[in-house]
């Protein structure tokens, strides 16, 4: 197979039977060694929103703990003759509702603006369209207009399929399932979308760094759901073109 001679040694998958153990998947650090952070713009969106919401969550959590602690220190029965009889304070309660409402509106704004920016890229013109077909328990990637198709050996992870993509090009994925509902997940690119039978789902992504990541199915799809994995490898444009030139027709691995 032409593709075999091209593939670097690190790519060879070891043969392991499903009952003995797992294919040793490895997250390769590539380039500057920061394969996770800033690998794609999408990750940046995730990082930004996650940082803001985490900070927000931590502040709320600490404030609640401090208030509880204060109450438990200063209002213990040993320190108090009698309890307060106040049970309503409409102005304070109303102000709190307005405050929480404003916080919620901010979070909605944060969520929706980032979502719409991300959704918009799906509808821009892509440089490459890849059809993704999921089936129990394997993947097939078809490069539209290039007569190239890649699929795993599909016997529970002996050879996982590798999705090879060009760097800095918008790639549109068109995903469909052949049987049950699956989910296409690129854990280190922070994107996932479900694959339905009889329906095509779409999303677009631009990969900014070369490297290799593992991808997997994230929706329970039957007996060997946990073996339904694949590789994503991002190459420079020239390396990708070379790879594509060697991959006419149907390829395994």
């Amino acid at each position: 197979m032409p593709g075999r001679s091209w593939a670097p040694g690190a790519m060879s998958a070891r043969h392991v039977s499903p009952m003995q153990g797992r294919v040793p998947l490895r997250r390769l650090s590539v380039g500057n060694g920061r394969s996770r952070a800033h690998s794609v713009p999408y990750r940046n969106t995730f990082n930004r929103v996650f940082t803001i919401e985490s900070g927000f969550a931590i502040v709320i959590f600490v404030v609640v703990l401090l208030l509880m602690g204060t109450a438990l220190v200063f209002f213990r029965s040993s320190r108090r003759k009698r309890a307060s009889r106040r049970s309503e304070w409409t102005l304070l309660e109303g102000s709190w509702v307005v405050f929480v409402f404003c916080m919620a509106v901010f979070l909605v704004w944060l969520s929706l603006t980032n979502l719409s920016r991300e959704t918009a890229s799906t509808y821009k013109k892509p440089a490459l369209v890849v059809k993704v077909l999921g089936f129990q328990w394997c993947w097939r990637f078809t490069y539209v207009g290039h007569d190239a198709t890649v699929q795993g050996t599909c016997n529970f992870g002996k050879t996982l399929p590798t999705l090879v993509l060009p760097r800095n090009e918008r790639v549109r994925f068109e995903l469909e399932s052949n049987d049950v509902v699956h989910e296409f997940w690129l854990p280190h690119i922070d994107r996932k979308i479900e694959l339905f039978p009889n329906h095509v789902n779409t999303f677009a992504e631009t990969f900014r760094h070369t490297g290799r990541w593992e991808g997997r199915c994230a929706e329970f799809c039957g007996l060997y759901h946990d073996y339904m994995e694949f590789w994503v490898r991002v190459e420079s444009k020239s390396a990708y073109a070379r790879w594509l030139a060697h991959h006419h027709g149907f390829h395994v691995g």
Binding site: V64, L67, M68, T70, A71, L72, F75, R76, S77, R80, K81, R82, A83, S84, R86, W89
Partner: peptide, 10 residues
């Protein structure tokens, strides 16, 4: 929180 505040907590 407001219920705890000002209480006589056991």
């Amino acid at each position: 929180i407001a219920t705890l505040m000002g209480g006589k907590i056991t």
